[in-house]
Simulated scan of single mutants.
Amino acid sequence: MAANNVNDDTQNNLHVTEVDLRWADFDRFGHVNNAAFIEIAQEARLAFAEDQFRERGYEIPAVFVRHLEVDYLRAILPDTTQAVVETQVTKIGNTSFSTRQEVKDRNGRVCCVVECVQVAVNVQTAAPRSISKVERKVLTAVATDEVQSQEALEK
Rank of each mutant, 00 (worst) to 15 (best):
D105E: 14
N12E: 01
S130P: 06
V65G: 12
V65M: 06
V63Y: 04
R28D: 12
A44F: 11
G108H: 13
T80N: 05
C116S: 09
I38W: 09
R109L: 15
I131F: 01
R129M: 05
I38V: 11
F48S: 12
I131P: 11
K137V: 03
H67L: 13
Q101Y: 06
V110M: 07
N12K: 13
V19F: 11
A49Q: 05
Q124E: 07
Q150I: 07
N5D: 10
K91A: 02
V16C: 09
L68G: 07
I76M: 12
Q148W: 02
Q118A: 06
N13H: 03
F48R: 07
I40C: 02
M1Q: 06
P128M: 07
K104Y: 00
V113W: 03
K133T: 07
A47R: 10
V32H: 04
L77R: 11
A141C: 15
A47Y: 00
R100V: 10
T10Q: 13
T99M: 09
R106T: 15
T99E: 00
N33I: 07
H67S: 00
V63H: 10
D51N: 04
P61N: 13
E55C: 13
T81G: 07
R109I: 09
R56W: 02
K133H: 14
E154F: 02
Y72H: 12
D20L: 01
A3P: 04
M1C: 01
A2H: 11
V134P: 06
H31Q: 12
N122C: 05
R22M: 10
I38R: 02
V113Q: 10
V142Y: 14
F29L: 12
H31R: 15
C112K: 04
V32F: 06
R22Y: 05
Q88I: 00
T10H: 15
D25Q: 01
E151M: 04
V142A: 02
K104V: 00
N7C: 08
V147H: 07
K91H: 11
V103M: 14
F29M: 14
D79P: 10
R74M: 03
T99P: 04
V134F: 13
A127S: 15
E69I: 03
I38T: 08
V70I: 04
V103H: 05
F97T: 02
V110D: 09
R56T: 06
